[in-house]
Design a protein around this nucleic acid. Structure first.
Length: 489
RNA sequence: GGCGACGUACCCAAGUGGUAAGGGAGAGGUCUGCAAAACCUUUAUGCGGCGGUUCGAAUCCGCCCGUCGCCUCCA
């Protein structure tokens, strides 16, 4: 199997991937808190992990992908005070918190589907795992890592010397910071909540050994990841902003409870800025995916995201996405040409035995694979595909070099690497070549225009062309005298 | 204040010691009735600045400048 190297936040260097269990990958990625529509930052995160997971599957791993839905327990201000975000929305809209959760969870999946993100194998919800979370908190108290105080349960950071190993932070530095709640019933200011007592009026609450309450902010991910992937698993991913405190706390809770290493590889994707500044509601530059989809094809947004590396920050701007879209059009054009030459026939591609004639697929695949296997370098992989496009276009342009079999192989090659793995083209897109009535009508107009051109009635011919263009149908006259069309947005 | 990341052409963006991928935009050309698409040529002696290590640095080290993130929920 291809060796994969990935950057492990824990060691701050690239490491060769070695799974816990031969041939299998267990991966957990922190999912969204569903109290609002997803934004472009969620898009980057989940598209990046989607490409990573598709690549693992492509090289032959059996992947189990778990991504939670946080539907409880986030507070607006800090660890111990403030409102639950979901409840805040619910109160404002006079809805049950679960209605808010349901609404935005559906919205999230809808956006992800449009981005071509393959759904996780398991999407566990925090509210569905309250019993397990209470159990984990209880176990931590038993083992001396946590304590109860007035209906709250806190993790005692001083009992876990490794606290800080992921983020590089020292407890002393944290304590030295100004933002500590002196009146708290914590033993140490750096301790974090495993379970919070529900005050009167708090809607989302569950009975526990410590009275009515709700789970702390980090507990769900430890609980659910270990439940479905085991006490020690391969990869845990998430946004860079979650590195501290969230992931740090997960490690502490999990390793204290089991006595085993929690996660082998931590992967963190970088953040999105908009026109150079951080997205925030107060700045008014918050771009939701639904906003972006009004301007751009979702797959173009996906392509834009994958054109930069997951560990690089991504600056979102209309200009940049437009530029990406034009590049993507080139790829789509080639696929359309090949589909025609191949008679729409997709064949199985043997990546171990690729030809170097008439197109050097072996070389381009080598470049593509090397890029992807080197910490999932999607920009490099895309560059390899674009270098190939030049070759393919030259071959098509020179006429007759590509026979149907070659075209079919190249067509299938591109659909696999660009479609199945990167997801930047739709592998099953038949919209333009179908036998539907629109196609028939367009072909009728094309024939009328060909007649007009034969009669040198260019005024009529150009009129047909421009009218069709206004409807989003672009005509292309071929050297052999035929005319093809493509549908653009 | 503490911790960390980044700064590559007009824009986006790969590249972690061997002499600057790829995409967009621009310029010239081929093809075309004209377009569109495509192809060819072209656009960074230089990778924020200044030093240093080295035969050799965008790549390593130091300092400075700038941007961003985390240290409070956040992908």
């Amino acid at each position: 199997m291809t060796d994969i190297y990935l950057y492990n936040t824990l060691s701050r260097q690239k490491e060769k991937f070695a799974p816990v269990s031969e041939g299998r990958v267990g991966i957990y990625v922190c999912g969204p808190t569903v109290y609002n529509h997803s934004h472009i930052g969620h898009g980057k995160s989940y598209v990046s992990f989607d490409a990573i997971i598709r690549f693992f599957r492509f090289v032959g791993y059996k992947v189990l992908y778990v991504q939670n839905i946080t539907d409880v327990g986030h507070l607006t201000d800090n660890a111990d005070e403030g409102d639950d975000k979901i409840e805040k929305e619910a109160k404002r809209d006079r809805m049950n918190p679960m209605e808010i959760v349901e609404t935005f969870m559906r919205s999230y999946f809808e956006d992800m589907d449009r981005l071509g993100v393959i759904r996780p194998d398991i999407s566990p919800r925090a509210t569905g795992h309250i019993v397990e979370q209470i159990e984990l908190a209880r176990k931590l108290i038993e083992r001396g890592y946590a304590y109860e105080a007035a209906g709250n349960v806190y993790f005692d950071v001083s009992k876990f010397p490794d606290y800080g190993k992921l983020s590089g932070k020292k407890v002393e530095d944290l304590v030295a910071g100004a933002r500590i709640d002196v009146r708290s019933d914590k033993r140490n200011p750096a301790d974090f909540a495993l379970w919070k007592k529900a005050e009167a009026g708090h809607i989302m609450r569950w009975p526990s050994p410590w009275g009515d309450g709700f789970p702390g902010w980090h507990l769900e991910c430890s609980t659910m990841s270990m439940k479905y992937l085991g006490d020690s698993f391969d990869i845990h991913g998430g946004g860079l902003d979650n590195q501290f405190p969230h992931h740090e706390c997960e490690i502490a809770q999990s390793e204290a409870a089991t006595g085993k290493p929690f996660v082998r590889y931590w992967i963190h994707n970088n953040m999105v800025t908009v026109n150079g500044t951080k997205m925030s509601k107060s700045l008014g530059n918050f771009v939701t995916l639904k906003d972006a989809f009004k301007k751009f094809d979702p797959i173009t947004v996906r392509f834009f995201i994958l054109q930069s590396h997951y560990r690089s920050p991504l600056d979102y701007s209309d200009e940049a996405v437009e530029g990406a879209g034009k590049g993507l059009d080139r790829l789509k054009n080639v696929i359309r040409e090949l589909r025609g030459l191949a008679g729409d026939k997709r064949v199985a591609v043997d990546f171990a035995h690729l030809p170097d004639e008439p197109i050097n697929l072996r070389r381009y695949y080598g470049d593509w694979l090397a890029a992807m296997a080197d910490d999932f370098n999607t920009p490099g992989a895309i560059a390899a595909l674009f270098e190939m496009l030049k070759d393919v276009n030259s071959a098509i342009g020179s006429g007759g070099v590509l026979n149907a079999d070659s075209a079919s192989l190249i067509y299938s090659f591109i659909l696999t690497l660009a479609g199945d793995v990167l997801g930047i083209v739709r592998s099953d897109d038949r919209a333009e070549s179908g036998r539907n009535i629109e196609s028939s009508l367009i072909n009728l107009l094309i024939n009328l225009r060909l007649d007009a051109r034969k009669n040198r009635d260019f005024k009529l011919a150009d009129s047909i062309r421009s009218e069709l263009q206004n409807m989003g149908v672009v005509l292309e006259d071929k050297k052999d005298g035929t005319t093809t069309f493509k549908v653009v947005r």
